[in-house]
Amino acid sequence: VLFFSTSHSLQYVYTAVTPGINFPEFTTVGLVDGGQIDYYDSNIKKAIPKTEWMKKVDAADPDYWTRQSQIAQGTQENFKVSVGTLMQRFNQTDGVHTVQWMYGCELHDGETRRGYMQYGYDGEDFISLDLKTLTWTAASQKAVITKQNWEQKDWALQFKDYLENECINWLQKYVEYSRSSLERKVSPKVDLFQKDSSSPVVCHATGFFPKAVMISWQKNGEDLHEDVELRETLPNQDGTFQKRSVLTVSPEKLKKNEYTCVVQHSGLEREMKLQVSDRRVLSGSVGIILGVVVAVLQLVLIGCVGVLLIWMKKQKKQIMKPGDTGSDDGHTSP
């Protein structure tokens, strides 16, 4: 019997990008359990729901989306200032640059709470909040001045209260709104393939929900931990997820040994096992086409989510936006 603990998460990601590229200068994305729930960007200039159940907010608060749009518009200007500030600090005068803010909360088994908040610049960690010490951790020397400024203004305690209380309250509300959707179980479709006979073997699971999944390998019936690489879980456009694990061994080892991909998911009655000997070997042309399709899909996913997730390696009537932090300018500018 497979056991998966019950956990839920609420996450927000804000991204500001220098102008001049084919991407909105500012985007915000909200996610529950890894699935997108709302979206705003500087082109459409309004916050919109991205799931049907998110529209239930209207019944309780008819002005919700108008208010969120106004908050995001104000935040957009503050983030534009932040990009300029950090470009000056890093002695940059041109090029493409990004500022990102990611924060959220998690609730495990209805009891354990966890919050987090971090900023990134140009795909690298910049500064993050330590909720235990209520201090900011500078990831580089350039962030020290930001750390000193924010600690003088004592914003950490306000963020801690939000992340461990208000954020959790909203998460529980959203889970209730979306219960029929979030608690559904959809089993994965699994495929084993190689680009050619000398390429790594890919075990690809897709179309599953919820997000939690385990993909492992066995060699001659024994668990295998070497020569394998587990990739990040990615969202599909229909609200399900996909994940892949890559086995890199020589063609000789593949012939001499019995390799198996093992997939475990709450939507499966029992674990799924696929023998590598039954894998599909793609022809060169098909492999190239597949690579192009995968690359395009990844770009589509980024466009749908509306944010460059390049750096993530991690008022009481509305979801907190930067204007709710209590800072003088409406945003914790660097």
Results as ranks from 00 to 15, higher is better:
63 D>M: 13
269 E>K: 14
70 Q>K: 10
181 S>D: 14
261 C>N: 04
73 Q>M: 07
295 A>I: 08
298 Q>A: 13
318 Q>D: 14
280 R>G: 00
163 L>N: 00
270 R>G: 08
243 K>Q: 15
123 G>P: 03
137 T>G: 11
275 Q>G: 13
233 T>N: 06
193 F>G: 01
40 Y>I: 07
311 W>L: 07
102 M>L: 13
34 G>K: 01
49 P>A: 01
17 V>Y: 04
196 D>A: 09
157 L>M: 10
39 Y>F: 08
98 T>N: 05
181 S>W: 15
224 L>R: 05
9 S>A: 07
121 Y>A: 13
76 Q>F: 01
12 Y>S: 04
322 P>V: 02
137 T>E: 14
315 Q>N: 07
66 T>I: 09
284 G>I: 08
188 P>T: 04
172 Q>G: 12
183 E>V: 12
73 Q>W: 04
61 D>Q: 13
10 L>T: 03
148 Q>A: 05
180 S>L: 09
206 T>F: 05
180 S>M: 10
286 V>R: 08
276 V>L: 12
141 Q>F: 11
300 V>E: 14
57 V>Q: 11
47 A>W: 06
157 L>D: 07
156 A>N: 03
258 E>T: 10
206 T>V: 05
85 T>N: 10
145 I>S: 15
324 D>T: 02
11 Q>H: 13
246 V>C: 07
62 P>D: 00
184 R>Y: 11
189 K>N: 06
78 N>T: 09
245 S>V: 10
17 V>G: 05
278 D>M: 06
320 M>R: 13
203 C>F: 04
325 T>C: 04
255 K>H: 09
302 I>N: 13
147 K>N: 10
195 K>M: 15
305 V>A: 11
23 F>S: 02
257 N>C: 12
135 T>V: 05
327 S>N: 08
201 V>H: 10
98 T>Q: 06
295 A>W: 14
72 A>D: 02
195 K>H: 14
22 N>T: 10
268 L>T: 03
83 V>Y: 04
231 R>M: 14
106 E>N: 14
269 E>A: 10
63 D>C: 09
304 C>D: 15
246 V>E: 10
258 E>F: 09
179 R>W: 08
122 D>W: 04
258 E>P: 01
266 S>M: 11
156 A>W: 02
114 R>C: 06
22 N>V: 11
213 V>A: 07
192 L>P: 01
73 Q>T: 11
47 A>S: 15
195 K>C: 12
146 T>N: 00
40 Y>D: 09
140 S>N: 10
242 Q>H: 15
14 Y>C: 03
106 E>M: 15
4 F>Y: 12
205 A>G: 01
199 S>P: 00
298 Q>D: 11
108 H>C: 09
58 D>M: 02
200 P>Y: 06
52 E>K: 15
46 K>Q: 02
25 E>C: 07
